[in-house]
Design a binder for these strands. Structure first.
Lengths: 237, 237
DNA sequence: TCGGATTTTTGATCCCGATCAATGACGCCG
DNA sequence: CGGCGTCATTGATCGGGATCAAAAATCCGA
């Protein structure tokens, strides 16, 4: 859980080869801009459980997730935790108005990010309205997801929460061409619980219940959607 | 609840006189731009309970709230409702990626908005990166609020939810110089419940409990914060 | 100003999900 | 491969907030 060794790529890497070239903020840049952009970011690796940044930290960098999964969360003073989202490749992190991060982020499994120092990145944006537009699109998409999640947290039962989570997670992975009906779940049960506003026991029991009903199979490191239609019915979207 | 007569101002109005000139999207425009901008928007009045736009409607306009309060909400197929926010003067509504609104909005009491047709507004933005930047700022601010609200919905008790709501609402009104320790609550108990992920009975009981403890007084159309410190302690921020 | 509709408050009871507790299943490193 | 620490599952019980029900307050139009 505590930050330890962080590996920084020793030298050159090329945006044009980047796996997330088409989906991330950089999709708004043409080939020439991209070459300039390349000098702004550097790849940084984090290993499982490491914290990339913490809530209330002064924002010194922005991050583009290249590989892996991160949990984004807020803590109450007494330790209660709410995970406000999971970040996947292509997600852009660190935008805020206060100059401080408004949530914490840590790696779930190995993570690679493209890190940009705040000031140079800000200057680069200044002259590229297309990049600003792209960042705005990502913010608007996140806002829409955030509102959907509010509905889940405020108005759905435990069964509906879990079913909706499985379907939503599968859909996000599908967009990355990473999954079919077998859905990897790299995060712990505790993470899922803190994302859905439940306890770990309730999440575990609900998985078991879904399995007993033949809707899913619990497999190592994930679940298999045996009957997606039934899960969708439970999610009551 | 159903849309009825909508009053449109017959003629000229001036952005330079606008009450929200300093806080809204238009704060990013200089005097010359503002004169051009003036022709894009028109003031529209809605009366209590009228729907300004509905979820899934094709987005034809953006809206700048000038006066009044609106509830922004999403419905589940079975009628459960989650209010995702209350809009106040200065708030900008209608941004989305899908071309359809992703929540519904209706007036709580009389509301005046500045309505912009989507296409001309889009064209105007195209040439004003400052305006885009301002819109982005508002989106980022909303995202931060949305995440705070997720914590409330997922991890706070009923008492904490109500206390945090009262303080948060007071703070938003304070920014508009509208309130001090007497906090107007133009929305119904049902609205508050649907915002906090509670039932109307729980909201009512919690208000009564706060009143019995001397923390607040329930007055006509709002509450009076008799002991803000105690309410803050309950909110456990 | 009256009478019916709506909203809010209050009371009684229930139930879903939390909590408390124990067992089971891995994974890791010696 | 054996022992230990972590994570997941299962079971028993509890309680906060939902639900059901009714009274009280407020609103509003005739």
């Amino acid at each position: 859980m505590k930050p330890s060794v962080v590996t920084i790529e020793p030298n050159g890497h090329y945006c044009s080869d980047c796996a997330i070239r088409a989906s991330a903020v950089c999709s708004s840049l043409d080939a020439a801009e991209l070459r300039e952009f390349e000098h702004l970011g550097r790849r940084v690796h984090f290993s499982s459980g490491e914290t990339v940044f913490s809530e209330e930290d002064i924002t010194t960098s922005f991050y583009n997730v290249l590989e892996g999964v991160m949990r984004l969360y807020k803590l109450l003073p007494d330790g209660r935790r709410q995970i406000v989202g999971f970040a996947l490749p292509g997600d852009f992190l660190g935008m805020n108005l206060s100059g401080r991060h408004n949530f914490s982020a840590d790696a779930i499994g190995a993570v690679t990010v493209c890190q940009f120092a705040k000031a140079p990145f800000g200057r680069f944006i200044e002259e590229r309205p297309q990049l600003l537009r792209r960042i705005n699109e990502l913010a608007i998409r996140e806002l829409s997801q955030a509102r959907d999640h509010m509905v889940l947290l405020g108005r759905r039962s435990a069964d509906e929460k879990v079913a909706a989570f499985l379907l939503g997670w599968r859909e996000r992975l599908l967009a990355l061409k990473e999954a079919s009906d077998t859905v990897p779940l790299p995060m712990s049960r505790q993470d899922i619980a803190d994302y859905l506003g439940l306890t770990i026991e309730t999440v575990s029991r609900t998985f078991t219940k879904l399995e007993r009903h033949g809707a899913i199979a619990i497999i190592h490191g994930g679940i298999s959607l045996l009957d997606p239609a039934r899960v969708e019915a439970l999610a009551a979207a």
